[in-house]
Amino acid sequence: MASESGPAISVLQLRIALRGLSPPVWRRVLVPEHLRLGLLHKVIQVAMGWADEHLHTFSIRGRRYGEAHEGVLQFYTVASELPLTAFHLREHEGFVYVYDFNAWWRQEIRMERRMLRQQPGQLPRCVAGYGPCPPEDIGGIERYLEARNEHSEYEFVDWIESLREGPIVLEDPRDEVDRWLIRLDRRFDRRIVNDRLRELDA
């Protein structure tokens, strides 16, 4: 943490929104402007709740940036080496982050504002968000929406009613109820995200 007499650092407020979902899934994070794209990728992974098991790319002003993987895609430059300061992002300017080229999770990232802070506190930091992120390997937006409909609140009520209609043998009803509650959980826990962000070496 910087002291009061220390130099102020430039902090960016970014809004990350996953395209194609309703209700929307989004996160608002604060990051130092000197953050490299490779670390921004890790921040997004933590904020969304993914495990970084697939390829990704950034598209900024018409150019692609990502990790170098032989025989996969050729990027303009390697993301891990490039800081956000290189782009001189304007307020409200946006760019795109795509994760998992099979599922094609497309996220719109908007630079909402730039702040100079002498005592910025923990960085990076998630300050707001809404909605649970889709599971890592569910197969994309359409498959996720199908699975969400299959495990909706209405389906849960129908399942409870079916238990009353006849003798259904369950090995452990509590385990099945727990599975339903996990599927129905639409909450976003900012504290968990910030606990994980503290572990990043930003």
Results as ranks from 00 to 15, higher is better:
residue 2 A to Y: 13
residue 6 G to V: 05
residue 7 P to L: 12
residue 10 S to V: 10
residue 12 L to A: 05
residue 20 G to V: 09
residue 21 L to V: 14
residue 23 P to E: 06
residue 25 V to L: 12
residue 26 W to H: 05
residue 28 R to N: 03
residue 29 V to T: 03
residue 29 V to W: 03
residue 37 L to K: 03
residue 38 G to S: 02
residue 43 V to K: 00
residue 44 I to K: 04
residue 45 Q to P: 03
residue 46 V to C: 03
residue 46 V to T: 15
residue 48 M to P: 05
residue 49 G to Q: 04
residue 51 A to R: 15
residue 53 E to K: 13
residue 58 F to K: 03
residue 61 R to M: 05
residue 62 G to I: 08
residue 65 Y to N: 10
residue 68 A to N: 10
residue 70 E to M: 12
residue 70 E to D: 14
residue 78 V to Q: 14
residue 78 V to R: 11
residue 80 S to E: 15
residue 83 P to C: 04
residue 84 L to H: 10
residue 86 A to F: 14
residue 86 A to D: 14
residue 87 F to G: 07
residue 92 H to V: 09
residue 93 E to A: 07
residue 94 G to F: 07
residue 96 V to C: 06
residue 97 Y to E: 01
residue 101 F to S: 06
residue 102 N to Q: 09
residue 103 A to W: 07
residue 103 A to R: 03
residue 107 Q to F: 11
residue 109 I to F: 06
residue 111 M to H: 12
residue 111 M to F: 13
residue 111 M to W: 10
residue 113 R to W: 03
residue 114 R to H: 13
residue 116 L to C: 04
residue 116 L to K: 15
residue 119 Q to D: 07
residue 120 P to V: 07
residue 122 Q to L: 14
residue 123 L to N: 02
residue 124 P to K: 09
residue 126 C to Q: 05
residue 126 C to M: 09
residue 131 G to E: 02
residue 137 D to C: 06
residue 137 D to A: 04
residue 140 G to Q: 06
residue 150 E to I: 02
residue 150 E to P: 00
residue 154 Y to C: 02
residue 155 E to T: 06
residue 155 E to H: 08
residue 165 E to H: 12
residue 169 V to Q: 12
residue 170 L to W: 05
residue 170 L to G: 03
residue 171 E to I: 01
residue 176 E to Y: 09
residue 178 D to P: 00
residue 178 D to A: 11
residue 181 L to A: 11
residue 183 R to V: 03
residue 183 R to E: 14
residue 186 R to M: 12
residue 188 F to R: 05
residue 189 D to F: 12
residue 190 R to I: 15
residue 196 R to L: 15
residue 198 R to V: 09
residue 199 E to P: 05
residue 199 E to G: 10
residue 201 D to P: 05
